[in-house]
Write a protein that binds this DNA or RNA. Structure first.
Length: 405
RNA sequence: GCGUCGGUGGCGGAGUGGUCAAUCGCAUCUGACUGUAAAUCAGACGCCCUAGCGGCUACGCAGGUUCGAAUCCUGCCCGGCGCACCA
């Protein structure tokens, strides 16, 4: 049996921090960047009681890169911590081996203990830009799910009906489309629900796509006579193109993107998203958000981009990113810090593009045909077999490269 | 188990013996436009090179039939649906 240690566990003995019951803060907690609170009055009651609540958030340690969408519940979690509540961070070490059916029919890759640990370290490194993990209790659900007996599983399963499970949108859709639904997928809500029972929490936080699972946990808590939790869901934010931010759409702003990437991506979001981003992703006050909303969209985005880059990097980095962006895109200057190759390393311009951009020869040829290659003087280079000439080049919209003597 | 339908490029989905590297939609990329975008318009969208109406590899996997197959046949693997089984 594997030993799952509890890292950073401060549950017992830690000096009880004062819990804030400030109405304004509670109101903001329950409304800003929130999709749903179920049930709302329970949340209100618990939060104003002055009691230190147990609140938890679970993740699948899949080793994914975190993006701004992931930051939304994390930021919410931090707000709870700031109010003085006890935050439990649950690593879905066991569930990761089953695979969350929320993501289509993703192949369930079973993860080893080492992978789970490594993935969580990876997660933590990225998430630490938002949340202070030293103040959180960290648990692995492997601890209680692995030893569950079949009879216990049957007992849990008897708390739900097939009809209830089928209510879930995703299942209905898949039924209609004739897509397979594995039986084990019905067990997933059971497992994450059981987490709530074991952890005996007052609140669970998660993305709105997890609402079904979280409510299953609420149900199980009631059935087992444990304390009743409330569920708080956070919105799934849209990516730079307006669709749900998701790796598969390639529209993500990653928490570890370097400042200029992050700035550029934020500048390219749709205008309509500015307000949401400001509200959900930044700590700016509502007055300020309002005044930014009144600005010219470009100015507003610059302000937003600067704000977010400053949060994940630094104020200086944000300023630098803004200057670089303006000079590169508004003024069309080719930056200096770009990939380069020596002139003798390539025999013609096409090879230069292949090397510096990392694409196939055919794709590079296309760039020449389409007039995507431009030198510093703004002249288009159209002959892929032309000999390499020392200088800086713009390759398409936002790629650059230079040939060194 | 039986029957039946199906597995095609990042996704959806055409094609049912020969100009098929494969219609089309989405996504992506490029050009024009712009406030960085978006929208719009135009184009591209397997890989290789000596760049040609050239070569190579592709339509679940393995064989086969044919001058020639993504398209026909056989076997296998994987899925949907229906039926049967249900102590």
């Amino acid at each position: 049996m594997v030993q799952w240690q509890c890292m950073g566990f401060l549950g017992f003995g830690a000096p009880a921090q004062a819990v804030s019951t400030d109405d304004t803060r509670i109101h903001e907690l329950l409304t800003r960047g929130v999709t749903n609170v179920i049930p709302r009055d329970l949340a209100q009651k618990k939060l104003s009681s002055g009691e230190r609540l147990r609140i938890y958030f679970g993740i699948d340690p899949t080793g994914a890169k975190l993006h701004l969408g992931h930051s939304v519940p994390l930021r919410k979690l931090r707000q709870f911590a700031d109010l003085g509540h006890h935050v439990i961070f649950l690593v879905g070490s066991f569930t990761a081996m089953i695979g969350d059916p929320t993501g289509r029919d993703a192949a369930r890759t079973s993860l080893s203990e080492e992978q789970v640990r490594a993935n969580f370290q990876d997660y933590k490194r990225q998430a630490e830009r938002v949340l202070d993990f030293s103040k959180a209790e960290i648990r692995y659900n492997n601890e209680w799910l692995a030893p569950l007996s079949f009879s216990k599983i049957v007992e849990l399963a008897s708390s739900f009906t097939v009809q209830q499970m089928l209510q879930r949108d995703m299942f209905q859709r898949r039924m209609e489309e004739g897509k397979p639904i594995s039986l084990h997928e019905f067990l997933y809500p059971l497992m994450v629900g059981y987490d709530s029972v074991v952890l005996d929490v007052d609140c669970e936080l998660g993305g709105s796509d997890q609402e079904f699972n979280m409510l299953a946990g609420r149900h199980l808590q009631q059935v087992s006579g444990k304390r009743e939790k409330f569920v708080l869901t956070t919105p799934l934010i849209e990516g730079t193109d307006g669709r749900k931010m998701s790796k598969s759409y390639d529209n993500c702003v990653y928490l570890e993107d370097d400042p200029s990437d992050m700035y550029g991506k934020l500048m390219s979001i749709k205008d309509e998203l500015i307000g949401t981003y400001l509200e959900v992703l930044t700590d700016l006050g509502s007055d300020e958000i309002e005044s930014i909303g009144a600005m010219h969209p470009k100015e507003a985005k610059m302000r937003l981009a600067r704000e977010i880059v400053a949060m994940y990097h630094s104020k200086e980095a944000a300023t630098a990113a803004e200057e670089a962006f303006t000079s590169t895109f508004s003024e069309g200057t080719i930056p200096d810090d770009i990939p380069s190759v020596g002139r003798s390393e390539v025999k013609n311009m096409r090879e230069f593009i292949v090397k510096v951009v990392g694409i196939s020869g055919t794709a590079a040829t296309r760039y020449f045909e389409q007039g995507a290659i431009e030198n510093e003087a703004g002249e288009k280079i159209t002959d892929p077999t032309a000999p390499p000439i020392v200088g800086k080049y713009r390759i398409g919209k936002r790629q650059f490269g230079k040939i060194l003597p």
